[in-house]
Design a protein around this nucleic acid. Structure first.
Lengths: 193, 193
DNA sequence: CGATTCTTTGAAAACAGTCAATCTGTGTGG
DNA sequence: CCACACAGATTGACTGTTTTCAAAGAATCG
């Protein structure tokens, strides 16, 4: 499963076999069953986690007891709670597997060490963060400027590989609308064709 | 006006007089009248900009011609279009002064140079980005989990110094609701007291 | 097959958006 | 100093969308 990561990494940066080996020896692979949690709120997230296969989601339980989906992650995406990671404080989120999944994990300490040893990795990390930030900005724009229907379509078009493998009610909570509304939108969208 | 920046910077990092002088000589101060644009969509944002006094806002004009407010900035905040800056591509945003304001500007080239020369500045920059990312995450959570009324209250409580110096209809477009709705929320919130 | 989870549907109510008119405060120029 | 224009805020009536609640219908899994 580390192969997936190696291939992914080499698609983005140039890295020697030695450095890659360094990265490999620092990691742990972990297999997750469906519904298995990777993080539960209250715990502190002190790892860096790459999804080599499967599908995870990160969500938060609101004061009303409802689940609000923050993010999905599928093959070759990263999943993290930046706030917990950076500030080393308990997370407000839960992360769970939506399918049987495999993840590769580095401790924060190990990852920091690796970034110091391998400048290209540090740069890569910065690029990932920039991408992640930009994605957040686009999502905010969508949330403040679009109707439920537009948000639904945008999500479907932007993340088709996520869209068709996660339950609809999670898409709804990701978009900030009710299950029922999403169900009706979908209906309207398949019918008029 | 550079004093404001110097004081701000020293509140956050330790920095020698020489380095501070280096930062100072690389910058330009600019005064903005009310309504004066600092960035117009289509232009590429290749500067780093610190607000030493006043109030700016960053917004985007939607396909429907409506303004969607992305962000406000007041004294000692930074304002930037990360996507345009990082990728050096035309911005989708407009940035304008909501009051007479003073900003301090470094070119991207100069700022990059400074960050290489002064490691503490680079670290500081990374911290700023982390904060900015976390703020985005909180905003997303608010947008997907809260009603208009809750969003309104949260904004008022989180950014009181912004709230009471920008027009209400801009707060509305920041929250993703109509002017009229915000106006009615405010009414309900002052009356029952 | 039975249990659980997920989705759909209907009807009513709550909510937010639109449109148009009015009101308020501010600043400008005659 | 007044009249006027302008930006901003408010209000009412109406429309449309979304939520809620409750129930029933698929789909999935052991």
């Amino acid at each position: 499963m580390f192969d997936v990561f190696a291939k992914y990494l080499r698609k983005h940066i140039e890295i020697s076999d030695e450095d890659l080996e360094l990265i490999r020896t620092g990691c742990v692979e972990r297999r997750l069953r469906k519904w298995q949690p990777l993080l539960q709120d209250g715990e502190t997230w002190l790892i860096n986690c790459f999804i080599s296969s499967g599908c995870l989601r990160m969500y938060r339980i609101g004061e009303d007891g409802k689940e609000h989906t923050f993010r999905f992650g599928v093959d070759t995406w990263w999943v993290t709670d930046m706030e917990s990671y950076n500030r080393e404080k308990p997370s407000l989120f839960n992360i769970e597997a939506l399918e049987t999944s495999t993840v590769i994990i580095w401790t924060k300490a190990k990852w920091t060490e690796l970034m110091l040893a391998i400048p290209a990795l540090k740069e890569f990390q910065e690029m990932l963060q920039a991408n992640s930030y930009e994605a957040s900005q686009r999502r905010i724009y969508s949330l403040i400027s679009s109707s439920a229907e537009e948000k639904y379509n945008e999500f479907q078009q932007t993340y088709p590989n996520v869209f068709n493998r996660v339950p609809l009610h999670m898409v709804a909570s990701y978009l900030g609308v009710s299950r029922e509304t999403v169900s009706r939108l979908r209906k309207n969208f398949t019918k008029p064709k």
